[in-house]
Amino acid sequence: MAGEALTPTTYIQHHLKNLTAQVGGEGPFWTINVDTFVTAVLMGLLIVFAFWLATRKATAGVPGKWQAFVEIMLEFVDKQARDTYHGTSKLVTPIAITIFFWILMMNLLKMIPADFIAKPLELMGVHYWKPVPTADVNATLGMSISVFFLMIVFALRSKGLGGFTHEFLTAPFGKWMMPFNLILNIVEWVSKPISLAMRLFGNMFGGEIVFLLIWVLGGAGILGMLGGATFGLGWMLFHLLVIPLQAFIFMMLSIVYLSLSEDSH
């Protein structure tokens, strides 16, 4: 869209379009959202690097400010995971830490105005770049499907294949209602990752649209700039709560689902 005059509608559509790549040549097997993939990986590497900095010079005595902050955050997540999960797996806390901090880092990109990322990339010939991975349903579904497979692994580890199959077919109405039990359990298991993904995606995508609308308002003269600045500041302050809250909800629901998958009905 370089060189074209952007209307408010086309401006918003432009910033909501992903940079894609076709995999598979002719008749591509799938389409990859390159911006989502690259940004998600970078945010993951960034949080790993940040934690490495905290541990590189960790001391048992008086910790530095960054080490103290990281320790407080890790202890908070660890406590939440231990209080929620009732099983014996030692993987739950690492899973909770990974989910929370990775989603938090991806959500925080919403605090950067879209043009601050898009304009430099346009100068390098990249005309589409959707900066917030969690505003892409492919990313949130990918994470929730990973949680879904972890639920199956945890259930099999706890109950065994026979116990899991028996419970899936007989709970909650007993063996004589097997078809209804099967349908109910399939709906229950499938709805968990879908709702998990859609909750995070809906909040992040909706928030991104509002940010873009406010940014458009800023281009409508002096009054528009003042209104855009006022609304933008208010929406940004509101999102300082929404961003960590959505990461926390995704993490807590994931741990709840893992705990429930091990419970017997």
Rank of each mutant, 00 (worst) to 15 (best):
I145H: 06
L46T: 10
M251V: 11
I12N: 05
A197Y: 00
L156G: 04
L53Y: 01
L19I: 02
I12T: 01
N185H: 03
V242F: 03
G44K: 09
A81L: 05
T84C: 04
T10R: 06
G174L: 02
L169P: 06
T88A: 14
P131F: 03
F148D: 02
I255D: 00
F29V: 15
A60G: 15
V256L: 10
L104A: 05
M106K: 06
S158E: 14
P120I: 07
G218M: 04
L200A: 11
V153C: 07
S195W: 04
D136G: 01
P244W: 05
L16F: 08
T31E: 12
E26V: 15
D115F: 04
G206Q: 03
T10M: 02
L169N: 10
F211T: 12
V132F: 01
D136C: 07
E4N: 10
V92T: 08
G227D: 10
A229F: 14
V77N: 01
G27N: 15
F201C: 07
G61Q: 00
T230H: 04
A21F: 13
D115W: 03
K90G: 14
K90S: 14
L241I: 10
V147T: 10
A197Q: 01
E122P: 03
G44N: 11
M143E: 03
K192I: 10
A60L: 09
M251G: 09
P193L: 05
V190L: 14
L223D: 11
G87M: 07
L237V: 10
L6V: 03
G64E: 07
G160Y: 01
I214K: 02
E167Y: 06
W235Y: 12
A247H: 09
A2Q: 12
F149G: 03
E75H: 11
Q80A: 09
V62K: 15
A247R: 06
H239T: 07
P172Y: 03
L233I: 13
F148Y: 09
M252D: 12
G125E: 04
G224W: 08
L241M: 11
M236H: 11
S254H: 07
M43F: 12
K110G: 14
D78S: 12
N18Y: 08
I183P: 00
A58E: 05
L223R: 09
F248I: 06
A60Y: 01
K159T: 00
E262I: 01
Q13P: 00
M204A: 15
L91M: 13
S89M: 10
H239S: 12
L16W: 04
M178K: 15
L213P: 01
G160P: 02
I186T: 11
E167A: 13
L233D: 00
G206A: 08
N138P: 02
T9S: 13
G27F: 14
V190W: 05
T7Q: 08
G227I: 10
H166T: 15
F168P: 08
G160S: 02
G227L: 14
H127L: 11
